[in-house]
Structure formats: C-alpha cells, structure tokens
Design a protein around this nucleic acid. Structure first.
Lengths: 221, 221
DNA sequence: TTATAACGGAGCGGTTCGCTCCGTCAGGAC
DNA sequence: GTCCTGACGGAGCGAACCGCTCCGTTATAA
C-alpha cells in the first residue's frame, strides 16, 4: 500500500514517465546545440533510451519538435508572468531575458521553417508575445529601458544569444555567454547611446519565418 | 551553353582567376550561413561553377575551408590595423567589430573542430589576436571601453553575432542584426553598469577549440 | 510459471554527402 | 579553316547517415 520509492511505485509505468522527461530534456539539449538537423538517434542516445521508446511516445521527429517548441514557449510565458510580478521593472525584464536564454527558448526559434506550425502553436506564440509586450512596456515606463528598443528586438536578442556553440569539456562557454549577455543587457539601458540604426522589426517579418500548415494564419489578414 | 562567360580578357586564364574569386565568395557566403556542414555542391552552384572547376583548385573540402579561414583572419588583421590607424580609439574598435561581423570572420570561427589546423593558420591567428589586443588596450586607455571587457570577450562577441540565420527574402534579418550589434556596442562602454559576471575568458579555452593536426601547438609548451 | 508490454537497438530503404571521371567545347598555333 | 590542348560543367560513384520500423529481450504482474 505505502509508496516506498517513486522509482518502483508502479514498475514500468514509472519508467515510462521518467523516460518521457529524459527524452524531452535530451531533445532540448541536442536541438538547441545542433539545430533541427540533429538526428533522432542522438537524442535517444543522450537520453539513454532506445529508438523504440522514443518513437512510441512521439510518432515522428516533427511531433517531437513541435512538443519541444510548445514547451519552450510555455516556459517563456511563465518567465513573462514572473517578470510582470517582479518588483523592479528592469530586473524583471533582465531576468526574463536571462531565463529565456538559459532555457534555450531562443535556440528553438530557428526551428521555424523546418516544422509545420499548428494553430495551437500560433496561439501560444501570440500569447507569449502579448505578455512580453507588457513586460517591455513596463520596462520602458519605469525600468530605464532605452525607448528605441522594441519587444521584437528583445525576441531576436534572446534568439541570437540562445544559439549555442557545440559544448566542449569545461563549462567556459557558458561563462563567456553570460558575460556577453551582461554586456548586451547593459546596452539595453544605455542612456547616452546613439539611436538604434535601421527600422524596428515588424511582426510580419517575425511571423513570416514560420511555415504554417493550414490555409491561413489565424487572425492575420 | 554557358552565358556566364563575361569577358575574354586573356582567355581561359582570366576565367580561371574569375572563377577563383567566385568560388571563394560563394564559399564564404554559404559556409557562414549554413555552417561547415553545407555541401560543396551548393558552393559550386552558388558560384556558377562546376564541381570540376572547384576541385581542380582545392583538392578537398577541408582545403577550401582552410583557405577561407585564412582569408577571414587576414581580413581581421587588416581591420585591426585600420582600427589602430583610426583617429578615435572607440570608433576604431567599433568599426573593427562591425567589419568583422559583416565579413563573417566570426561566422567562420565555429569551423574550429571541423577542420585541421595548420601551423600557418596558428601563426595568422596569433598575429590577429596580438593586433586586437592593441586595439582593445587603446580603447581601454582612451576610448571609453569599460575596463572589465577583455579582447577575448570581443572575439566571442564577434563570433556570436556572426552566426547568421538562414537568409530569407527581404533583408530584414540584416537590419535586426545591426540593431542588436548597436545595443551590444553601447553595452561595451556603459559606465554605470555592474561588473561583468564570471571570469575573463582564457586564451587556453579559446585555442582549445581548434583541432591541431601536428604533434603540439607551436610555442605552447 | 505464463502472459504481457515496454524496453534497446539492429537494420531497412532512401537521401545526401564528398569526390571522381568524362564528354564537351572554347582558345591558340599553324 | 584544322587540330591540339586543357579547363569546363555535371552525371554518377560508393559511403555515410537519415528517419523510422520491427523484433528479440527483459522486467513485472498474476
């Protein structure tokens, strides 16, 4: 009756759940480093799981990528909510950026164009962008964020820094990325800097990178 | 058949030289976007040249990548010299960064680990780093560069921003990258920012990413 | 024990890779 | 003009790798 250990709670069922998490973590790690071209076999190996176990849960590589993408976007939504709840507007935005980079949200954005986009994914994406808009607006108002930075600039910044190099022994790469990110964050509130060059990125440009499987994008005409 | 033959200044010799340049330009474009995994056939197609013409000049894909790498490093050396000759120390450094990013110098650095490194490449690399040290030192002294930024931070910054996404129709991507780069540059001279996290990157860490074909790295033991 | 089902991974067809090899054809010498 | 030369473009080779399936093995429950 009593549950002694999670591992043996329900036998193979427990192992199944555990494998589920292992696969997802391995997939995020692998795809955020090697891009969408990474092989499924590498994901399975990194997860310590056989190909069969992986494909029993995700019918195809595409479905795995879609699930991964949704998870990343949901994490971004959580981070945005945390930023809005934060006491200091600037700290909230900075933590949002750092969290998103660390979670690899941005690294998964280049998946755009390689997987089909479901309406569900569009909905979550839009929701996340609305929340980020609020975070950025607050940072503009009371966080010292320079006024010519838009929320889409932030999105691309996260994507740019999320693109990891192949991890080598010794976590030095992580150290360097954190330093560069700190530099960029400092640049986000630089007061005496020249105005940003070019034009603010448009939402059309951002959404245009996704390949949509349906007839039209919902709500965009 | 082929109307790409533009002018016959000196017959086939002229065509050979022209093809040489075309191949190199195409290779830099292709490899800086798709990484070292891009196919040689794509390079040939982009250059408007047959496989035969390509392989007559470069015995293998590795040799092509090595030549490309050397050219990029030589361009970086030129940019560093220009920065030292510049009147304003900060403008010199900023132009160095912008030029290097635009030229794709940083985008070719991730080739490390995928090609064998010749002693010649080591020499050029070291020379370029020495010059960059001078540029950064001058920017520290008289350019307003924040003191906790090292020259290796700059190297990694260039590499991070050189990593291009697959170019889509509409040059919006370039616009966004220039904006992000401007943000980072502003961050490089932010005076009131918190000190950079972590530890300064080491030259050992940087050099460790290159696979060397010889017995030992010259001058490193 | 037997029945069951999730397991790991070998192997399938198909695709793409780096590279070679060859038929073609534009100069240059006469 | 004719012939020779050699650089040209690209089809095609074997190997490697891909996403995915299928099956023998193994751990659990009855």
């Amino acid at each position: 009756m009593s549950e002694h250990h999670i591992r043996h709670r329900r036998g193979r069922q427990a192992e199944a759940e555990r494998n589920d998490i292992l696969v997802l973590e391995a997939a995020r790690e692998v795809f955020s480093v090697h891009g969408a071209d990474a092989s499924v076999a590498l994901v399975a190996k990194r997860a310590g799981v056989g190909m069969g176990s992986l494909y029993r849960r995700y019918g195809s590589k595409t479905q795995l990528l879609q699930r991964l993408c949704i998870l990343a976007m949901e994490q971004a939504i959580d981070a945005a909510n945390a930023a809005l709840a934060s006491e200091d507007a600037w700290t909230g935005l900075a933590d949002y950026v750092r969290t998103s980079v660390a979670a690899g949200s941005g690294a998964l954005a280049p998946l755009a164009g390689t997987i089909e986009t479901t309406p569900h994914m569009w909905e979550i994406s839009r929701r996340g962008r609305e929340l980020l808009d609020a975070v950025v607006a607050r940072a503009h108002r009371e966080g010292g964020l320079r006024p010519d930075v838009t929320s889409l600039d932030i999105v691309w910044l996260i994507e740019q820094f999320g693109r990891r190099a192949a991890a080598r022994p010794g976590a030095q790469d992580e150290n360097v990325r954190l330093r560069l990110l700190a530099i960029a964050l400092a640049g986000l509130r630089a007061r005496d800097a020249e105005p940003l060059p070019g034009t603010p990125p448009t939402v059309q440009h951002y959404e245009g990178r996704w390949r949509y499987s349906g007839a039209a994008r919902p709500g965009s005409d």
